[in-house]
Design a protein around this nucleic acid. Sequence first.
DNA 1: CGCCGGGCTTACTTTTTGGTAAGTTATTGC
DNA 2: GCAATAACTTACCAAAAAGTAAGCCCGGCG
Lengths: 121, 121
Amino acid sequence: MIKLNNKTYTCPVDVTLSFIGGKWKILILSHLNIFNDRGFSEIRDNLPGISEKMLVQQLKELERDQLIEKKVLSLKPYRVQYNITPTGKSLSPLFEFLSEYGINYLKEHGIDYMKDQQLYK
Amino acid sequence: MIKLNNKTYTCPVDVTLSFIGGKWKILILSHLNIFNDRGFSEIRDNLPGISEKMLVQQLKELERDQLIEKKVLSLKPYRVQYNITPTGKSLSPLFEFLSEYGINYLKEHGIDYMKDQQLYK
DNA sequence: CGCCGGGCTTACTTTTTGGTAAGTTATTGC
DNA sequence: GCAATAACTTACCAAAAAGTAAGCCCGGCG
């Protein structure tokens, strides 16, 4: 067992998954891996089905873990921009693999995913 | 949204994670990626903290998804052996990456994981 | 004979995760 | 002046994942 920040992990894999686990983080990171300077609603609108509550939550955790960063553009009308960090980018082989594997699996089951997938691939 | 076997997925990544998500599957697969012909309790004893209920459940799902296979050696005293399948093995770059990333992260935070890690690395 | 180990099953509870929906502040556009 | 948009916050609720603990069948061992 590994102890880190008051949490316990069974192994290093567990540690990595603590950053990117959950239903949306990998999708958010994949999106920010392709697009720069994204606003909150731009991200939201490209994640079919996510609730704002979830998005806020995941963005906060990703920021805390330094995989993404948030720039506040203005306060009076509150406007922000999100970008992936180098640390976040270093995970991109993972996203690639997970996505390729999924696409391949779908193909073998008669589902072609390539169309309309410029986003969160 | 992708529909497959009465379930919906947001993207291919989601599909892949449906096979290997959860707290224990990757650890089980990593273990079987290294060791052949493992009995139930051999696996259990190398997964610190897993309950038998969880192990049974995860093994069943991994078998159903054809990432591992189970040989029944004898019925009267019930004895079995688990092995990873080629499909399961094809995921090993993923385990490697997740593990390396975790180990590296731990190193940067002053925790050295290498010792006593012939198992579930 | 009684206990131990292997490979489970079952019932019950807790924790974690995710979803719904409404409300907030402030600006732009008609 | 009213609606829409951006970027959230809050409260409440349901479902899914995981944990706890006990029990079962069978054979080997002392």
